[in-house]
Nucleic acid binder design. Sequence first.
DNA 1: TGATGTGTTCTGCT
DNA 2: AAGCAGAACACATC
Length: 282
Amino acid sequence: MPELPEVETVVRGLRKTVVGLTISKVRTNAPAASIVVGESFKGRSFSSILNGKTIQDVTRRGKNILINLSDNITLWSHLKMTGRFLYVSQKSPVQKHDLAIFDFNDGSIKSGNQLRFNDTRRFGRLRLYRSCEVNNQKGLKELGPEPLEISSAEFIKLFSSTSRMVKPALLDQSFIAGIGNIYADESLFLSKIHPQKLTNKISRKKLLQLHRHFKRILTKAINNMGTSVDSYQGVNGQPGSFQKYLKAYDREGKPCIFCAHKIVREKIGSRSAHYCPRCQRL
DNA sequence: TGATGTGTTCTGCT
DNA sequence: AAGCAGAACACATC
């Protein structure tokens, strides 16, 4: 499942492969919901807008990918659960779930590769907006702070500003952006905080630990090119390797690394939470 | 065959 | 107002 480290890995992969290239052709094979064109384009098609545009840079906001194109146009993508960008040879067979295929001008590039947006579950999105309006779109404008940028003081302030269970809060993109189930469970485990603990009832000391731990975990996961417990792959098809460092997520029934008690898995805030009931007390 | 899980958005409840 | 539950989305997997 792509969360911040996986999305960051994809962004870095796109920077290495397609920045500087000019789009020469776009083919789509997607349900209407998967590809959205902003109203200011007045009914023009996705492919006609993209044709001839040069990819200038690629950035990330939370779990969102922003591909900035020439003429102040931004291709905004969210991978949801199974979305992928793959940079592959034009000869590689088109897959059933390749929803969009981008060809590039040859120019000086001789690779003959193309970029494909593939999504088996079709929850992922590609959206086109003018760069000046993209940040005001629903899904981007209400995002909370970036976890790798927030200071410890801001972090403590954020947690004291509300009273809600910490696990659902961490998953709430408007509370803090980019964290999903894997890294929420991992950071709460290392900080020894129960997932149902209320945000404003966590001690300052524990909050500082949580702040430090999730920065450390996210950074280490990025360095390992993400976590592949399911189907996640980077732009070149490579899996991540952070799964070998998981201590709580996907370890139901296995011994806690601190006390050997079994890790439990329980629905909290309608999402499964993995934690050690002995180390993480309410 | 049917339940499950996954991120996000939406609706409706308290 | 804020937070929560549940549904919906689409599909593979078990």
